[in-house]
Design a protein around this nucleic acid. Structure first.
Length: 494
RNA sequence: GGCAUCGUGGCCGAGUGGCUAGGCACAGCUCUGCAAAAGCUUGUACAGCGGUUCGAAUCCGCUCGAUGCCUCCA
């Protein structure tokens, strides 16, 4: 199904700062690159939000019928700790601290990353390349940039010449900066050493003898510079000009700006048509920071082992919470906000559970076609998941009314409603019904049904003491009974 | 200090020149043995001060505040 032919999708392009109609380079195909994690420590929640935002975008493109190649890298070569004399690889530094091999650190935190995002139901990207696996490609790009005259070699290192580049190109167009202003505002901190200009950045850095991660190159043993890996991997798998490049807002400058410069210097054309930036996640209104303690890891949220939140929150609830905010907005995480989201999530999932048991009627009290169009309109407007969710709750209301027999839908409309809800809730938003996924659900169901029957017998005998005991004890165990027109049902509450 | 984004009702969070966001919480009602769940009803918010306009939360200016970047960072 090539839904994209009937939907005009708009995306916020950071290059223009405006919403633009998305037109892929090749009809029906989307190439998307997203800057992945640096695997030198546990992935944190802010990272997860960014990757989740692009996961949702990936999912929606696929839902529209595009063939998507989604490349998200693993940065396992680390970045420079300092851009001056003490060039030291971040991963190498951590390794020394812990007295283990750099690749052991990489492996450990790559596993942590994968486990965490799997819990959050992120789809694997089409390609997940590593920086260390693309050293040769990076060296080749440096050669090309040197040949074009946009870089220079100093003492075994290679630097990108921003000033020369700016004479023929526009350095700063993504982040709205002017090179002249940046030069004027340069802080007079440490001496610049090898660089001609403080704005220049390393393409290749000479490795000191104690540096563990090192590769041979035409300029001596060393390691690739800050921004090069993304240029190497994005162009290798997506081409010199591709559709979408994404990442967190904090990467806009200098990382993405430098990527543009490298690619333009090398190929003479702009690498990316649409730059998408996901916004930050704050915690209790403040930025997350390990040093101040205003920080929480995903595993701590899921387990409840933290001093910030009153209870554990399931990955599904966290995902729903994040989908309730637009990806370009700052989102503030707090206990109250999560509690509210958890209730909303439960309400949505219970309606999803009711949906299957609904039967068609003689006429339709709810215009499903128009509602469906609204859902698509929301997503087509720069992936507006909060608006989509608002529409989903509109459907929840009708689902509950139909369940109670107060409204009805003809079979065809009901089928359309089911299909559309399933698409958006599970495929696009990537939500999972965590209660339905629990083990032993069949036997649990039998046990609770038994208690429901006993309670109803007690109620018929007006033995309310017994019936209320059953109800209240079950609730204390996290099982809530719901008396409806057609008998009693139950759901798992936390 | 510079650049950027933003500041919405009790909480979270959309919208963005005139028309209902939505969720959670609160209150009333229906249902119920009582509750819960579900449904219905109610909320006239847009940081402050000026300006543009017939009309601004929405555009412009200033002030204050928050967040991000300017140094590895989603």
């Amino acid at each position: 199904m090539q839904l994209f032919k009937e939907h005009e999708l708009k995306v916020t392009n950071s290059l223009s700062g405006k919403k633009e109609v998305f037109k892929p380079i090749k009809e029906g195909y989307v190439g998307m690159y997203v800057c992945g994690p640096t695997v030198y420590s546990n992935v944190h929640l802010g990272n997860c939000r960014t990757f989740m935002s692009f996961d949702m975008i990936f999912r929606y493109f696929k839902h529209l019928g595009y063939k998507v190649r989604y490349v998200r890298n693993i940065t396992d070569a680390g970045h420079l700790e300092n851009d001056a004399d003490e060039g030291e690889d971040k991963i190498a530094k951590k390794a020394k601290l812990e007295q283990i091999e750099p690749m052991e650190v990489v492996q450990r935190y790559t596993v942590d990353f994968h486990e965490t995002i799997k819990k959050l139901n992120l789809l694997p990207p089409s390609i997940e390349p590593t920086a260390t696996g693309h050293i040769i490609e990076q060296i080749e790009i440096i050669k090309e940039i040197l040949d074009k005259g946009f870089a220079y070699v100093v003492n075994g290192s290679v630097y990108f010449d921003v000033v020369t580049f700016n004479e023929s190109n526009d350095y700063g167009k993504l982040s709205g900066r002017k090179l002249e202003d940046m030069i004027a505002n340069t802080r007079e901190l440490t001496a610049q050493g090898e660089k001609k200009n403080p704005q220049d950045f390393a393409l290749w850095k000479k490795a000191e003898p104690q540096h563990i991660m090192r590769w041979p190159s035409p300029w001596g043993d060393g390691f690739p510079g800050w921004h090069l890996e993304c240029t190497a991997m994005s162009t290798k798998y997506l081409g010199e000009n591709f559709d979408i490049h994404g990442g967190g807002m904090d990467l806009k400058f200098p990382h993405h700006e430098c990527e543009i410069a490298q690619a333009e210097a090398r190929c003479g054309q702009t690498p990316v048509n649409y730059w998408l930036h996901a916004n930050m996640l704050t915690l209790n209104g403040k930025k997350m920071s390990k040093s101040t303690g205003n920080n929480i890891y995903p595993s701590e949220m899921f387990s409840g082992e933290n001093d910030i939140l009153s209870k554990p929150f399931s990955p599904s609830v966290v995902r729903f919470f994040m989908m309730q905010a637009h990806y370009t907005s700052i989102l503030d995480l707090s206990n109250d906000a999560l509690l509210a989201s958890e209730k909303g999530y439960t309400k949505l999932m219970e309606a999803m559970g009711s949906l299957d048991g609904l039967n068609g009627g003689n006429n339709s009290d709810f215009e499903v076609m128009a509602w469906k169009a609204n859902c698509y309109a929301a997503m087509n407007d720069d992936f507006n998941t909060p608006i989509l969710i608002a529409h989903l709750f509109e459907a929840v209301k009708h689902i509950n009314l139909i369940k109670e027999g107060k409204e009805q839908l003809i079979k065809k409309d009901l089928e359309l409603l089911k299909a559309t809800m399933n698409s958006f809730v599970y495929d696009v938003l990537g939500l999972i019904d965590s209660a339905a996924n629990q083990d032993d659900s069949a036997s649990l169901e039998g046990v609770v049904q038994l208690l429901i029957n006993l309670r109803n017998q007690a109620r018929e005998n007006k033995d309310f003491a017994t019936s209320d005991t059953i109800r209240d004890e079950l609730l204390a165990l996290g099982i809530q009974l719901k008396d409806g027109k057609d008998g009693t049902t139950f759901s798992i509450v936390s």
